[in-house]
Amino acid sequence: MSKDNAVQPFEPKVVAYCCTYCAYTAGDLAGSMRLEYAPNVRVVKILCTGKVDAILLLRAFEDGADAVYVAGCAIGDCHFLEGNLRAIQTVAYTKKRLAEIGLEPERLEFFHVPASDGPGFADAANEMTRRAKTLGPNPLRKSITQAAGRKLAKESDEHPPLPEAVLGKLIHHSERTTVG
């Protein structure tokens, strides 16, 4: 083993949830523009950042990501009108959960990256990689052997479900009365 290998620098794993309409396209553009950015980023393409749920972000950390970010459209540009606004809320909420658990909230962030912003895509990737390097490895990666926990299967209710209630349908008086 050579000496160089002994002090291997920490290379963080960064997960990026990228909106297909903007940030993901910006990633393509960054490639076309031959921009260099941190190779630590694993991009997950999603239809809209509005789909990102707190559990999705938390799972990434639980599985060992050192930093996670969500990259969505500029304010007012969401293909689905307000998906990016929801993602901002979700990220803010999840940061609080991280703090509660004892992980640094800075490991998580939201970025606006319009489709035309190749350099913006590279900046976000570099920024989160830099943060992960500063904060060090996700402590959850330290191998504490622990059973993962499981989701128990819930059996279908013992009694068959009642017939569907007719919700939202106006039933007129006359439908309930018989003529005669």
Partner: peptide, 25 residues
Amino acid sequence: ELFAAELRMKGKLDGKQRTIDEITI
């Protein structure tokens, strides 16, 4: 799901031996 994940992560960070299972009825 979220809460169980939090408990698992917190337990792991605090070095606790812990299994968290979940079910919703």
